[in-house]
């Protein structure tokens, strides 16, 4: 399916839950989805006969702009050969979003990474712990306002 057809299909089912489609940037076309709807949209994308997005190639957490974090989902379908990029904006004040780990099992560790590095909280992820940084690390270092601490466990960090 072409990206426009996918967009129209999603819009007809979820209405306002689906935001803008952007095709004019020099990156893969992407569309915004309302963060509160992401679990339903994800399930639909996977199970709908004409979409069959059976593979989550990547899930990333992004410090998006002044007020928002974002989760970016890169999807593709092995059986139908099409791709889709979905973005969800989540306010920095309360960075909570539903987990899609029960839709695509691959999401589980990706969500842990996004939690670890930008501090996104995925509700429903079965094991939301840090995955890369040490367990006793403080803060989320890929946030733009992150300040590198002087010391970690007695080891000086700055050069």
């Amino acid at each position: 399916m072409e990206i426009n057809e996918i967009y129209i299909k999603l819009k007809s089912v979820f209405g306002d839950g689906i935001g803008e489609l952007k095709t004019d940037l020099p990156v893969r076309p992407f569309l915004f989805v309302d963060a509160s709807k992401i679990d339903a949209v994800a399930l639909f994308l996977r199970d709908e006969e004409s979409l069959q997005f059976d593979n989550l190639s990547c899930l990333s957490g992004v410090d998006y702009d002044k007020d928002n974090l974002a989760v970016v989902y890169h999807l593709c379908s092995y059986s139908l050969g099409h791709q889709l990029v979905v973005k969800c904006l989540v306010p920095k004040q309360d960075p909570k979003i539903k987990s899609v780990a029960d839709v695509w099992a691959a999401a589980e560790w990706h969500e842990r990474e996004a939690f670890d590095l930008v501090g996104m909280i995925f509700e429903g992820n079965p094991d939301l712990r840090r995955i890369l940084l040490p367990e006793d690390w403080e803060g989320h270092p890929l946030r733009k306002d992150y300040k590198v601490p002087e010391f970690y466990n007695g080891m000086k960090i700055p050069y």
Binding site: L133, P141, Y146, V148, M155, K156, I157, P158, Y159
Partner: peptide, 20 residues
């Protein structure tokens, strides 16, 4: 030896093993 390419922005890198 000293943190290498991560010397400035490597929040996660020890800047030289001789620190420990």
């Amino acid at each position: 030896n000293c943190g290498g390419p991560y010397w400035e922005h490597g929040y996660h890198v020890l800047k030289g093993i001789d620190r420990i």
